[in-house]
Computed example of a mutant assay.
Amino acid sequence: MLISKEVAQSIVEEAVSIMNHNVNFMDEEGLIIASLDASRIGDFHEGAVEVLRRKKEVVIDSGQQYEGAKPGVNLPVSLNNQVIGVIGITGAPEEVQQFGKLLQRMTEILVKEAYLDEQDELEAQAREAFVQEWIQRNYEDEKLFATRGWMFGINIHKSRIAVILEMKDFQNEWYERIKNEKVGVKEEVNMQRYRKSLVRLIERHFPEKHEHILLPRDSARYILLLSVNDQQSQEGIRKSVVHRLDEIQQALLHMYQQQSVAGIGDVCTRPGEMRKSIEKADRALRYGVDNGHRHYFYDDLGIESFVYDVPLAVRERFVEQKLKPDQFKNLDEYLGLLQVFYQHNGSITKASDALHIHKNTLQYRLNKFTDMTGLDPRSHRDSTLIQIAIAFYHSS
Rank of each mutant, 00 (worst) to 15 (best):
F306D: 02
Q250F: 11
D117C: 07
V261H: 03
G153Y: 08
V261M: 00
S4I: 07
Y287R: 08
L198T: 09
D371R: 13
H344P: 04
L245W: 05
L122N: 10
L245P: 10
N80W: 06
S277A: 05
F318P: 03
D332I: 05
R238D: 12
G88W: 01
P325T: 02
L331F: 06
R54A: 02
R105Q: 09
V58E: 03
T370N: 12
L375W: 05
V261Y: 01
K168F: 04
M106W: 06
G302I: 10
F145C: 06
S379P: 04
L375D: 02
H45E: 08
K209Q: 14
D27P: 02
L214M: 06
V310T: 12
H212F: 00
A48E: 03
I348D: 12
E50C: 00
G85T: 00
V111G: 07
L338Y: 09
L285E: 01
F297E: 00
L52Y: 00
L366H: 10
D309H: 12
M19C: 05
E173F: 04
D61K: 15
K329T: 14
K168P: 00
L2Q: 12
K196Q: 14
E67Y: 15
Q97M: 13
P207N: 03
N155D: 15
Q232C: 03
H254E: 14
E50T: 08
V23H: 02
N180F: 07
F130A: 04
D218L: 08
Q257G: 08
E128C: 01
I60S: 02
